[in-house]
Design a protein around this nucleic acid. Structure first.
Length: 427
RNA sequence: GGCUCCAUCGUCUAGUGGCCUAGGACACCAGAUUCUCAAUCUGGUAACACCGGUUCGACUCCGGUUGGAGCUACCA
């Protein structure tokens, strides 16, 4: 009879609370999450806090935030290795009784004892990996402060929690033989190993703060949507079978598979993230996007934002850019900055103002007709005319469509702004 | 130094011996379109690190070279 529970996939994300996790770390969490969901298994969060010297007070909170901001929800409660010392002690005693562990200056070392001359495993992404055993040295499993090292704690925990797949960074490849020996010594079946390449910076070095080694929080503060961050990270080292690029977290869970994880190290490319973000802004409903924008700009209310969103949506690449583009609807323009770019004469301003004054009703197409008429009479180019009007009503170089913006602003306000521009030009 | 991993356009990648004159995406360039700018559409430039082997046939398999990365801690 097959025990269902035995086959159920169970993975863990095991950060050490030594700081705020950057996107490289979070991608490891994402892949663990996606695999668990894909397999209808479980995704555990285990805090690997066995190094008492490097603990950072707020780190666990930051780790939890980073995951929840992206909707990467873990199953069950968080596991703290520091609270499971008894468990390691029990396994340690087994090793001692088998004479496979011995004291060394207050610490305990594991004795490498094997008659094989190589030790290997089938890695889910790298295929067969094999190490000669003669390069292995007795290593410390229990430190003199009574805490286990990573090697020991992770092996004991993974077995105790019935982890089926250890998904972690490539940097653990060379210590996997040690782990395998530990499993053997304790008489346990090792899990499947899935080693994922690290993300590199554009300089092909380790991801630095300057490039992408930022926390999820920082990216969101800069105006990136969680959906875009997830989508981007998923494509760093993994690809789907077809050419689809835009995936939600749910969609990713459906198609994710281990055998499509790449072996080589991807480079963090912010331009691609920007593109994913633009796509997600386009894809998002006005309602949802308005709420996102509202988080960044609490001074505007959601209704206001939603009202003008259709005019500006195409022009914003990041949520934080909303204000730059939409500012004309909230504040009087600062004309000084781009005054020099106004390409039409004062007399023409007067003509436009007089013509617009007569307009009734006030609508974008009527404004357009009136303005275009003057444009032809004065033999102005569209570029000259529209650019000048855009600056006059917004003070900005990049503006929403001008006539609909004027309509939204209202007749009085528009004419008022044109008059102000007129005055500024006279000086 | 030793051990291990990795190697396709600038970047993310598809490719599992003939479908490859190497496909898609970002970025870049050009054209079209639009109500300025942005957006959009169409097109274009651009890669199998190198050398041997295996094979009728290699981007794909094997060996080597070069280059990059990781480990070699009482850190994870």
């Amino acid at each position: 009879m097959v025990n269902d529970n035995m086959n159920k996939v169970k993975v863990r994300y095991g950060p050490s609370p030594t700081g705020i996790p950057h996107v490289g770390n979070i991608r490891t969490a994402l892949f663990n999450y996606l695999f668990a969901k894909n397999q209808k298994g479980q995704f555990l969060l285990r805090i690997e806090d066995t190094d008492q010297n490097r603990l950072v007070p707020d780190a666990v909170e930051k780790i939890k935030d980073s995951l929840t901001l992206l909707n990467l929800n873990w199953d069950e409660q968080i596991i703290y290795q520091s609270k499971r010392l008894d468990l390691y002690k029990k396994s340690l005693e087994i090793l001692i009784s088998k004479k496979l562990a011995y004291q060394d200056e207050g610490a305990t070392r594991f004795k490498i004892k094997t008659d094989k001359n190589s030790i290997g495993w089938e890695d889910a992404v790298h295929g067969h990996i094999e190490f000669p055993t003669n390069v292995l040295e007795d290593f410390i499993i229990m430190k003199s402060d009574g805490f286990p090292t990573y090697h020991f704690a992770s092996v004991v925990d993974d077995h105790d929690l019935e982890i089926t797949h250890v998904m972690r960074g490539d940097e653990w490849i060379s210590s996997t033989p040690k782990h395998l020996l530990l499993y053997e010594a304790l008489g346990w079946q090792p899990p499947k190993f899935v080693h994922m390449p690290p993300i590199l910076g554009p300089d092909k070095n380790k991801l630095s703060k300057r490039h992408g080694a930022k926390s999820v929080h920082e990216f969101i503060d800069e105006g990136y949507l969680p959906e875009a961050i997830i989508n981007f990270m998923a494509f760093l080292g993994w690809s789907p079978q077809d050419n689809q690029e835009i995936f939600s977290l749910d969609e990713l869970s459906k198609v994710f598979s281990l055998d499509r994880i790449n072996k080589n190290t991807p480079i963090f490319n912010i331009e691609k993230l920007d593109w994913f973000n633009k796509e997600w802004i386009k894809k998002m409903s006005d309602d949802a996007l308005s709420h996102e924008i509202n988080k960044d700009f609490p001074e505007f209310n959601v209704t206001q934002i939603k009202d003008i969103l259709p005019l500006v949506k195409d022009r914003i690449g990041k949520v934080t850019e909303f204000k730059n583009i939409a500012n004309l609807f909230f504040e009087k323009p600062n004309l000084q900055a781009n005054k020099k770019e106004i390409a039409i004469k004062i007399e023409i301003f007067t003509k436009i103002i007089n013509s617009l004054k007569k307009l009734n009703p006030w609508g974008a197409s009527d404004i357009s007709t009136a303005v275009n008429k003057i444009m032809e009479e004065e033999q102005l180019t569209k570029s000259q005319m529209y650019k000048s009007l855009g600056i006059a009503i917004s003070g900005q170089l990049i503006t929403p469509p001008i006539f609909p913006s004027m309509e939204k602003l209202g007749k009085e306000e528009t004419i008022d702004r044109l008059k102000t521009a007129h005055k500024v030009l006279q000086k």
